[in-house]
Design a binder for these strands. Structure first.
Lengths: 168, 168
DNA sequence: CGGATTTAGTTGACGGTTCAATTATCTCCG
DNA sequence: CGGAGATAATTGAACCGTCAACTAAATCCG
């Protein structure tokens, strides 16, 4: 997820019929990309240093506590987070090693696995979550009006819907 | 840069005075995070598969072609992209190995280095850029009104400015 | 001059992500 | 039943980014 800036037209051999970005489009796009990088980076860094948990750990723990027993199927988890299976698998291995979750066999399906949050996992999340919420407020929500937030959500949903359409 | 969702309140021991996110805030935040991940991921994937260049490569090449001679100081590059020095260094090593850039000594400062884009680097960027612009349009700009885009840019700039204020 | 500090850039180790290949189980259907 | 797929999940290799430690050159200043 990098600085997806765009090259100045003059540096390229332009035989192409691609309509280049207008200055406003370019500026907006750059700002937006920068926001993603900086805000995401800062939040991740805060989680890591203040609560000793990565954004990825946090996301997994949240998914597990979203269901009362703290126990979900592997694939269900992967789909909820929109992660690849292999990413999920590798990540869970690390979380198991740190005692945040355990793998359990699935009686109905011999191939399947249940992932269960441990007490340590719950404790970690409980400690991390309030600070994270605070950070999301302080770094983002506090500087955005309700109307802007609505616009943001609408645009996000619309664009993601389109992404899902072409080649999901 | 992960799914920074938030846990449902009921699962946490809530002795804290942290004002939780309202449902609209939660929804907007989630949508926004999802947009970042999906759009960034898709664009990066397109660059990689269609043009055999990563987003990071692309960003570096753009920075180099932004100046006519295609030659910039290491730190200047790192600052322009807001990358850590070590990331820059590692990444440049990989790009050197692939023949996209070369390192040159800096006469004025024996510690310094110039990074220079090669012809292969220029060619790669020239091939990749139009498709990238096209993708940014097709996946994002085409689904956002000018007014929304302005809002997005304003919000982005404002939030990033705040991020720079606290502990730059 | 010459030592202390700062600055430019590199390196190695480690955790994280992707891709392709693999294992094991299940389901479908003849 | 039994074989052909499909599905659940793991694994290993390769690449990427971060952190902390390091090298080497420049600058500051007595």
């Amino acid at each position: 997820m990098c600085q997806l800036t765009l090259p100045c037209a003059y540096t390229l051999t332009m035989g192409e019929p691609v309509p280049w970005l207008t200055p406003e489009e370019q500026r907006a796009w750059r700002s937006f990309v920068r926001l993603q990088e900086r805000l995401g980076g800062r939040l991740a860094h805060l989680l890591q240093t203040e609560s000793n948990v990565s954004s990825a750990d946090f996301a997994v723990l949240v998914q597990l506590t979203d269901v009362p027993e703290g126990r979900r199927r592997f694939l269900e988890l992967a789909q909820a987070l929109e992660w690849e299976k292999s990413r999920m698998s590798h990540h869970l291995s690390r979380m198991v090693k740190r005692g945040l979750v355990v793998r359990e066999e699935c009686p109905e399906d011999g191939r399947g696995a249940f992932i269960v949050i441990t007490d340590a996992g719950r404790a970690l999340l409980a400690a991390a979550a309030p600070r994270h919420v605070e950070a999301v407020r302080a770094l983002f929500l506090d500087h955005v009006t309700p109307a802007e937030l609505r616009t943001l959500a609408q645009v996000s949903d619309r664009v993601v819907a389109k992404l899902n359409e072409d080649q999901s």
